[in-house]
Design a protein around this nucleic acid. Structure first.
Length: 206
DNA sequence: CACCAGGAATGTA
DNA sequence: TACATTCATGGT
């Protein structure tokens, strides 16, 4: 089991560069999550598409204000109502469809997120990808951050970083995901921490 | 006022 | 494969 030095070194590099332990995301990753928090991650994964996190928080606050604190409750909302609630996150017409569809899928097929978490990663990924509004990045974000599955998330920050560091020129999703996964030990905590660092680093580059 | 912020689906070449 | 377009709000 030979590992790619460059990727491991990149991790060490980012660790040194962002050693401030107050990186909020990193701390959040280390905490054990409740089921509610996991469901919130699923919701956030849809809402954050093409939007900054601040707007997502407004939408999530609205959900809480309305007492919508679970996927089950979302699954039973009327689309109109959901639209109103999540409006601050932008793209509310499409996102409300995606979110309702995803919530119904999970609730109908698995009941709750605990059951979802027990599913096999590969099969679950395929199922998520078949849903409208869920591409590779969103599917993998759900798998990694909501379900603690060891799946590396590739985003624009990852692509930029890999290019900037001159590690390789290919940028397709599957290629980069494979590069990271074969270079690192299969550990969801490591993947979460690494990806969080990549995002922190990407934001600081501007 | 113009542009951007942690995407995905669809269509075109 | 690689772009271009659409969806839509709030911050700077």
């Amino acid at each position: 089991m030979k590992r790619n030095n460059k990727i491991e070194k990149l991790y060490q590099l980012l660790k040194r560069k962002h050693n401030s332990p107050n990186a909020q995301w990193s701390l959040w990753c280390k905490r054990k999550k409740t089921e509610r928090e996991r469901e919130e991650v699923v919701i956030g994964a849809i809402l954050t598409q093409r939007t900054n996190w601040k707007n997502v928080e407004r939408a999530i606050d609205n959900l809480k204000k309305e007492g919508v604190d679970s996927l089950n409750k979302i699954a039973h909302l009327k689309i109109r109502k959901l639209q109103e609630i999540i409006k601050p996150a932008g793209f509310y017409k499409t996102k409300s469809r995606y979110l309702l569809n995803l919530a119904r899928f999970i609730v109908k097929k698995y009941g709750n997120i605990k059951r979802l978490k027990k599913e096999k990663t590969k099969e679950l990924r395929q199922e998520l990808l078949r849903l409208r509004g869920i591409g590779e990045e969103t599917a993998d974000s759900i798998l990694l951050y909501a379900l603690d599955k060891p799946v590396f998330v590739v985003d624009e920050y990852t692509r930029r970083l890999i290019k900037r560091e001159g590690i390789c020129r290919k940028t397709s999703y599957s290629f980069l995901q494979n590069l990271f996964e074969k270079s690192l030990r299969k550990d969801f905590r490591l993947y979460q921490d690494f990806h969080a660092l990549i995002v922190t680093d990407g934001k600081s580059e501007k």
